[in-house]
């Protein structure tokens, strides 16, 4: 494993819950590592599985998808749709040797602290996994 490896994470966050939760972490000044960069989407149901693969192909070490808790989706069932895709994606990523690099979490607009915890935990997990092997191949 690289020394001092600092994973690069892309976050796909729904604008109603998780993005607002991440904002709340900010307004509450809850600190978390700067490894995550967030893409704001209307709903986790908008996350095209191809975008997740594209992020890994581009070299991201981890992808976090975060949206509303089950039953709270602003569009009723976008988060259910995402959790179905998540299960399929996990199988594919396992086969590609990218297992453990995709995370799906439910973070409400009032859970700023939870968002920070999720990021902290994911950074630690990715540190133990090491860099994205696709990125290594390109070296």
């Amino acid at each position: 494993m690289e020394r001092g490896f600092n994973p690069n994470i892309i976050g796909f966050l729904c604008q109603w819950c998780a993005y607002a939760g991440a904002d709340l972490a900010g307004t509450s000044r809850v600190k978390y590592p700067s490894n995550i960069k967030i893409v704001r989407l209307p709903c986790t149901g908008r996350v095209d599985p191809v975008y997740v693969l594209r992020a890994f192909l581009g070299g991201a070490d981890g992808v976090l998808v975060a949206g509303c808790h089950p039953g709270d989706c602003h569009y009723k069932r976008g988060n259910y749709l995402m959790s179905q895709r998540y299960m399929v994606l996990q199988r594919i990523l396992d086969i590609l040797g990218l297992g453990g690099r995709l995370k799906l979490e439910w973070v409400s607009a009032s859970e700023g602290g939870k968002f920070a915890e999720v990021v902290k935990g994911f950074v630690e997990e990715l540190k133990s996994l090491g860099p994205n092997p696709i990125r290594e191949l390109g070296k």
């Binding site: 904002d23 700067s34 920070a116």
Partner: peptide, 19 residues
């Protein structure tokens, strides 16, 4: 979003600037 998701949540100036 470099306030709620950068300057208010990251303390290390270098890392925050890079992000």
């Amino acid at each position: 979003n470099i306030r709620e998701q950068v300057s208010w949540v990251h303390e290390n100036s270098f890392e925050a600037t890079e992000k």
